[in-house]
Design a protein around this nucleic acid. Structure first.
Length: 118
RNA sequence: CGAGUCGACCGGGCGGCCGCGUCGACGGGGUGUGCCCCGUCGCCGAGGAACGUCCGGACUCCGUAGGGCAGGGUGGUUGUUAACGGCAACCCGGGGCGACCCGCGGGAAAGUGCCACAGAAAACAGACCGCCGGUCGGCACAGCCGGCCGGUAAGGGUGAAACGGUGGAGUAAGAGCCCACCAGCACCCCGGGUGACCGGGGUGGCUCGGUAAACCCCACCCGGAGCAAGGCCAAGAAGGGCCGCCACUUCGGUGGCGGUCCGCGCAGGCGCUCGAGGGCGGCCCGUCCGAUGCCUGCGGGUAGGCCGCUAGAGCCUGUCGGCGACGGCAGGCCGAGAUGGAUGGCCGCCCGUCGCGUGCCGGCAACGGCGCGCGGCGACAGAAUCCGGCGUACAGGUCGACUCGUCCG
RNA sequence: UCGGCCGUGGUGUAAUUGGCAACACUCAGGGCUUUGGUCCCUGCUUUCCAGGUUCGAGUCCUGGCGGCCGAG
């Protein structure tokens, strides 16, 4: 589990991040990134639906994503809200594939967010 | 050695780097003195099915749970258990040479319904083709054919199923009409068993279809809801939450209208023991609650945290009782409690197994054994209040008991 | 946690108390037509699966599998 300060914990946080944030997709996942208060720490949450697989598969996907996000959480702008949504392809993807997709999607989302802020 | 039956169990191991959760200790910081945050260390941290949610309970609330009807469930017997639709042993029926396996296994002489097609007839009696007797008529007259009346149910064919079976006696033809044996039914007696039931004997009518996973009858059981149960605290007298529609929008939202929800407020009405109203899953009886109440209308909240929350019908070992399920006693152990949801991520080695290549050994050969290298695969599946079962999914493996067949001693 | 509904040709639906699995559209093949359309003929089913009751099961019973919906 991520530290409480780095987690999205309310349903409203998820919906606002997904609706208002910049979206960037890859084969295995989609990320939503939204700017927030500058003095708050960056926060992240995960969405892994039943379409991905059974409980065991969903747990594995979420744990891998969590470990990947943990290494990158400090590189995110302060106060940003991140939601990582797993797609069905994530069930069969390797750890390396997931890492590449997440890094690429995050780069794209950050670029869009900075462009929108200007 | 081969084929098979039953039961019990395991369900990857070791290590490295980086992480997470509960609890405890220590240190630091904050504070409303309840506690909270950060760091370090330590203990523990998914399953045999955690699954499906098919039963049964614990627990909590509602508040009485009384009777009848209705409804639902169970269905051999005796046990076992907190309880069960589970389990054990036994009985009965069926299958297997056998170890053993399978069975929603009460009642069809309480009643009702149904049994398509075929067939004369499908449930209680009857008679289509037949067989036999009488009578009438016809003819080519020891006889044959047809009509009518009567007797009969042996033979025929249909069907899943046809009113006991075989043989004899008997008759005009026949028939449990009678006889012998057999099958089966009811009742009685004796013996065994707690019982389901089993064994033996006798009597009787002579024979009785199936279906209750059709209605139904009988016996027994069932109050309702479920941890989002439920409890405590905080916030809140504010135009709030949710849903739908419309308008505007920088697409994030904002505004309007309507509906709905609610410990509250306002107004009106009813009522305060001659009682409004309500509860008892549905109906009736009956019974209980009830005045800080109830009904209607208008205005109109909250939904955040903590507890419940993990020590229990608990697990292991030994021993005693019991065929067994299980129970008694003694000793020891503590084994997850998350809340957008921890129990992990990456890598290496080993192990098992399969494939390919290769070396050695055996063999004429197919091939087998041992070793090395590379590669693939290693299942089903993730706690959400807890427990006892059932059902279902599952790579591979271990142990024990037993049966049958073959060979050797 | 609790409750409800459904599963039949490729698709959408029928099938009285248990008794011949039916209809429409689509698709494939053939015929008709110069070609296409129309029309005609033929074909396409383990009634989700496995057991059971029954002479006989899409229907009744039991257990699974899959899908959909609802409540707090």
């Amino acid at each position: 589990m991520l530290a409480t300060a780095h987690r999205l914990r309310r349903h409203g946080d998820f919906t606002s991040a997904v609706r208002a944030g910049q979206r960037a997709g890859r084969a295995t996942l989609v990320v939503h990134l939204r700017h927030g208060e500058a003095d708050a720490p960056p926060r992240a949450g995960f969405v892994v639906s039943r379409a991905v697989g059974g409980a065991v598969t969903r747990n594995r996907v979420r744990r891998r994503l969590r470990h990947l996000v943990r290494d990158r959480i400090d590189q995110l702008p302060a106060g940003s809200m991140l939601v990582v949504r797993a797609l069905p392809a994530a069930a069969t993807a390797t750890y390396v594939q997931l890492a590449e997709d997440l890094a690429a999607a995050l780069r794209s989302a950050v670029r869009k967010t900075e462009a929108a802020a200007r």
